[in-house]
Amino acid sequence: MTAQDTGTATTAKADGLTVVPVRLSDPLCGPMLRDLEREYVTRYGPIASDEMARYPDAEFAPPDGLLLLLLRDGEAVAGGAYRRYDGRTAELKRIWTHAAHRRRGLARRVVEELERAAAVRGYRRVYLTTGPRQPEARGLYLAAGYTPLFDTAADPETIGPLPFEKHLGAVPAGAGRPGGT
């Protein structure tokens, strides 16, 4: 899998982070997957472990999906994925930031990288759900311009998974690819 395959740069940025596309089975994903499972189980109980096994590796692989990590000094500090929801919609999944790196805008950057890559792949909409016991995720998606598809005044516990959507603009020819803008 190359940067051109995913529309995702693999070069280090001025902030010392490198964005890399990976497979779910990549050992670099281990910390993310363990932390996500631990967090889900803490918030929702043992049944949450089922969510981590719900999608096979292929769901997050090109051409229909993407899993990326933000690395600092070779270690995963944030990550996330999208999968094909329908012909024009990518579904965000597994948005994660290592506990020692939170409150630095890394999850927002992951979401932006995934949106950009999804748009390059031809998706025009992003859909996601987050759990009712994840107020920081709810805040992230609202701040990132997502439209809640639920009554924000209602008690989240009465809703269940909280759905959001965001419409993506068309990508100019060459954007997101080597030599593009």
Score class of each variant (00 low, 15 high):
Y85Q: 13
A3I: 00
R103M: 11
Y146L: 08
T2G: 01
V120D: 04
W96E: 14
Y55E: 04
S25H: 07
D86F: 11
R116V: 06
T147P: 05
A48F: 07
P132C: 11
P178W: 07
L142F: 13
R109E: 11
L17G: 06
P178I: 04
E37L: 00
L140Q: 06
G65A: 06
R84E: 07
P21T: 01
G7M: 05
V120F: 08
K13I: 02
L128P: 03
R108Q: 14
L71G: 12
H101L: 05
R116K: 14
G79W: 10
L36Y: 07
P56W: 01
L70R: 07
T11D: 00
A81T: 04
R121N: 02
P172F: 15
R34H: 09
V120T: 13
A76R: 11
L128W: 06
L33E: 00
E113P: 11
P156M: 04
G65M: 02
D73L: 15
D86C: 10
L67W: 09
A173T: 08
R38S: 08
G169N: 10
A154S: 06
L24Y: 02
P56S: 03
P163T: 14
V126D: 07
V111I: 13
P46W: 04
G174Y: 15
L24D: 13
R109L: 09
P132H: 11
A76W: 04
K13S: 09
A12Y: 10
H101T: 12
R108C: 08
Y82R: 04
A14P: 03
Y44P: 00
D151S: 00
V126K: 14
G180K: 09
G122R: 12
Y40T: 00
R83D: 01
P21D: 00
G87K: 09
L68F: 05
E39A: 08
V110W: 14
L106V: 12
E157F: 06
H101C: 09
A90H: 05
G45S: 12
A143F: 03
I159Y: 04
A53D: 01
Y127M: 10
Q134A: 02
T10S: 03
Q134L: 07
F60I: 00
L92W: 14
E115Y: 13
A90K: 05
E39P: 06
G145K: 09
P27I: 01
P172N: 15
F164K: 02
G174K: 10
A173V: 14
T158N: 05
T152I: 01
L28K: 08
Y82I: 03
K166N: 00
L17I: 15
E112I: 12
R23G: 03
M52V: 02
P31T: 15
A153L: 12
S49Q: 05
A143R: 12
V126Q: 03
Y123I: 03
A9I: 02
F60N: 01
L24F: 11
E91S: 10
Y146C: 10
Y82T: 00
S25G: 06
E165S: 06
A170Q: 14
L33P: 04
A78P: 10
A170I: 10
Y82W: 01
F60Q: 01
G79F: 13
G87I: 10
E112C: 03
L168W: 08
